[in-house]
Amino acid sequence: MPLMTARPLVEARGLCVSLGGTRVLDDVGLTVSEGEVHAFLGPNGAGKTTTLRVLMDLQRPDAGDVRLFGAVVGAEGDAWRGRVGWLRGENALFPFMRAQELLDFLLALSGASRSRRAELLSIFGLSDAVLRRPVGSLSAGMRQAVAIVAALQHDPDLLLLDEPTNALDPIVRARFLAQLRILRSEGKGILLSSHVLEEVESVADRITLIHHGRVLSTTSMGDLSARLPRRVRVLSTDGTTREWIAPRVDSVLLRELADSNPAAVNIEDPGLEELFRALGETAA
């Protein structure tokens, strides 16, 4: 779905939150549209979870406003409820309930008329035997898989996912990311908060970088790739190796390469880590 014509599902502007006298969010704004995976990236304590909690009306901001599906959260009713899937960073599922019972309970609270549960259980390998067990007795990975099914089972239009791949093994993680691509193709909006850079790169359309409660940058993945610095490694004819970070491949870089008598040159694909480090250091 082209982003230009997609309807915005989330519109947040000027969000400011202070907790215990500390400014946790400072003028944070972002949008998530239909058919978009918007990555929300930052180190621990950057303000990602607080932002997501504000979007879900779990934390009231000191300033700023949030629109979900076009309606101001809080002021214009609760029409958004039941249309959002939320996955907490810290798994807080009720340990005393059996997994099946928990999923039934949350589905009933969502008021959904249909469910994708069967499909999701199959994708994440949750058998009937697992569903019969109390959530508290499941492994961390299984609990996270149950939490993902709980967030997706009512077929929400918008997904807010906070560190969703925590504790997932590589196979289940890959299935989860594939599922996100499918959901995006169905027109769902997805806000994916993470500090796992590789998974963000593999699914995100746009990315917002946040640090110390301030948005450093919001850009498309394409633009971001163009801005990413390159790690250049040169093996010279005399056997020495040089390595440096170049902001872009240009005549200056090429001249330096020529001057270093290269036997071999390796320009690595850009990584978000480099960019984040650069932007983070700038902001700090």
């Binding site: 909690r53 879900m56 009306d57 779990l58 609760d78 409820r81 039941g82 959002v84 939320w86 907490r88 810290e90 807080a92 599922l93 009720f94 949350l106 609270l109 969502s110 008021g111 709980a150």
Partner: peptide, 14 residues
């Protein structure tokens, strides 16, 4: 305190 209310309050439950 343990975050369980957040799971409930993002459903239709106010």
């Amino acid at each position: 305190g343990r975050g369980g209310l957040e799971i409930l309050l993002v459903t239709r439950l106010t």
